[in-house]
Design a binder for these strands. Structure first.
Lengths: 343, 343
DNA sequence: TTTATGAGTGGAAGCGCTTCCAAGCAGGAT
DNA sequence: ATCCTGCTTGGAAGCGCTTCCACTCATAAA
């Protein structure tokens, strides 16, 4: 028997379904002999009670909030996740947090479709992933409220996002203010495999800062590749091999900044004495290694996103927008003044 | 109406339930006018389709694997989580990973009870938390297979755990081999609020190493407190204020080791020149800051735990035990040779 | 002996959906 | 006028459980 039900158990044990249910729920009103009969039938048949039927019958409403993100590859997910959990804890309601990891970008859409078709989630937090118009319609039509975290969203109400372009500007400006003139950008290739334009936006900010400070654009100072420490490491080696290597690097994420720093050290140079490095995100790690970076309040964005979503789920008539605090330049030890005069 | 059903929608729209269902599922065989009537009724009533009823009816079996841990306070959770997700991805089955955060230890048992009563999970991964005999029975009787990660388990089949006592021994031995004689232990107070004896086991390993090397035990070198960087920081200040401060510190986790190092630096001393520090876990951070530590393969333990649980869920007749690789001493820059002769 | 009492039990109803079958109905073919 | 076809539609059955009501049968009380 593929999937025995309590009817099968009842028949095998020679009792009624009510009795089986009572045994299953540890009701005391069952004689020891009957209980033993039922338990043995359960064992024989390999019976497993259906969670869904039970929930329907008892009227328990378990609501799931899905968090979907390519988190294995993105370290910043942790901080957002922590914020989400915090918001969930603060409101004492029966929502479960279900994790969906997008391991392969091609499967992302498929995963969304499955969620809609199989009604697995009641609400969705989408982080570090783009939502196409089709996908928005799909979710809307299915009645699944969702909140986008961190990227790719215009002025949509349901989006918690920093001003990436401004962040890119701030980072580059910091380096320019320190006197650097050969400033490189290390970031993700765009258009990104997940379809979000974070790298592009920060790059645009970088460009506008250069322009404002009257620095001519050098395409060899812009190095794009896959997200991650290793790629950044490789790109930096390439930068250092240039006839006129940069004196400062703006990495689009802290993890990539780490890759840059390691490459610089391996080349026998020092950070920040020889080359300054600024990152982006301010993940926990950055504090420990003393990385100058642009703080984007990751934990808080998870927190606000969850708050907003809960708001949409529990009081859909009265959804209030959430504001992320502005980006913040955090100066630590990885950037330093530079002047051609001292060379 | 508190919770309108499709019957209510059907009545309001003046159609049959079949038609409502068809509209809900985007079946094409509904005339535009009817569809509009239904949609408006849905809007008016604020109808939301029951996920559970739908799943029961369609026979979709969504199986949930719960991961329960005090993760907001324990940074090592990330690595385990990553391992869990990896294992889930490798087996292409319909399991959801549901996160349960134990924010207050008192609520842990309550959370387990709710899971059992409300049948929310089909299997459970329990990390950094102890499972009492009562709790074991509770889960067993409810037919919820579970795997414990990392602590507190004897030789139970369903437990993935490093040999914490041996790990403590290895860490202390490393310091002793380097010539240190005044070796402190900074760890969690035990019995721990969550009921697991990690700190105690590592402490025992520390003790046995001291004994083996013939070092007398000094109770003032053993500093216990809450888990976390801040407490470790404070405890270290206390250690440094001793008339004979230790020359080496064994911190029971990398995060605590970081707290120690910061306190040492703030006291104007250097690591490892003045004081050596060894941690435990080998979280990602440790690689970047050059912390000597004992690697306990956190990611892999999450991976193996998930594998084991999936095995229990899908082939309960043929459960095979999983072996965690042995602990590994990882020597980086935070420990150094010490000899009284050079002082 | 009769009458409460209560423990143990069987089974129908119902949870809210999907789906299938039957039936209504319009319009074209015969 | 009659039949057929195909598009819409209504509604019953069923998913697997819980729970309540009704019933039986001891046993205790009268």
């Amino acid at each position: 028997m593929p999937n025995p039900t309590i009817y099968d158990v009842a028949r095998t044990a020679g009792v009624g379904v009510g009795t089986v249910s009572r045994v299953l729920n540890n009701s005391t009103r069952v004689s020891p002999e009957t209980q033993e009969k039922v338990l043995s039938a359960i064992r024989v048949l390999g019976f497993r009670r259906s969670k869904v039927a039970r929930q329907l019958s008892t009227g328990i409403q378990h609501r799931n909030i899905g968090a979907i993100m390519p988190f294995i590859t993105h370290p910043s997910f942790v901080e957002r996740l922590r914020g989400m959990q915090l918001a969930l804890n603060h409101q004492d309601n029966d929502f479960n947090l279900v994790l969906y990891n997008v391991s392969e970008p091609e499967r992302y859409h498929e995963q969304l479709l499955a969620m809609v078709e199989q009604a697995t989630v009641d609400g969705l937090l989408i982080a570090t992933l783009n939502v196409s118009d089709d996908q928005r319609d799909l979710l809307t039509q299915a009645g699944i409220p969702f909140v986008t975290l961190s990227d790719a969203c215009g002025e949509a109400l349901n989006c918690i996002s920093p001003d990436n372009r401004h962040g890119g500007y701030v980072a580059a400006q910091h380096l320019l203010e320190l006197g650097h003139r050969r400033v490189a950008y290390v970031g993700d290739a765009f258009p990104n495999i997940y379809g979000f334009p974070t790298s592009e936006l920060r790059y645009e900010g970088y460009l506008s800062a250069l322009k404002e400070y009257g620095i001519p654009y050098h395409s060899e100072y812009v190095c794009l590749g896959a997200h991650g420490e290793d790629t950044a490491h490789r790109l930096t080696e390439h930068l250092l091999a240039l006839p006129e290597p940069p004196t400062a690097i703006f990495a689009m994420s802290d993890i990539q900044a780490v890759g840059c720093i390691l490459a610089i050290r391996e080349a026998g140079l020092r950070v920040p004495e020889d080359i300054s490095v600024i990152g982006f995100d301010d993940v926990q790690l950055s504090r420990y290694i003393g990385l100058t970076t642009v703080r984007q309040h990751l934990e808080q964005s998870g927190y606000l996103g969850m708050q907003l979503l809960l708001n949409m789920l529990t009081a859909p008539d009265n959804v209030v927008a959430r504001q992320l605090p502005p980006l913040e330049l955090v100066v630590r030890g990885s950037t330093q003044h530079w002047s051609a005069l001292f060379r």
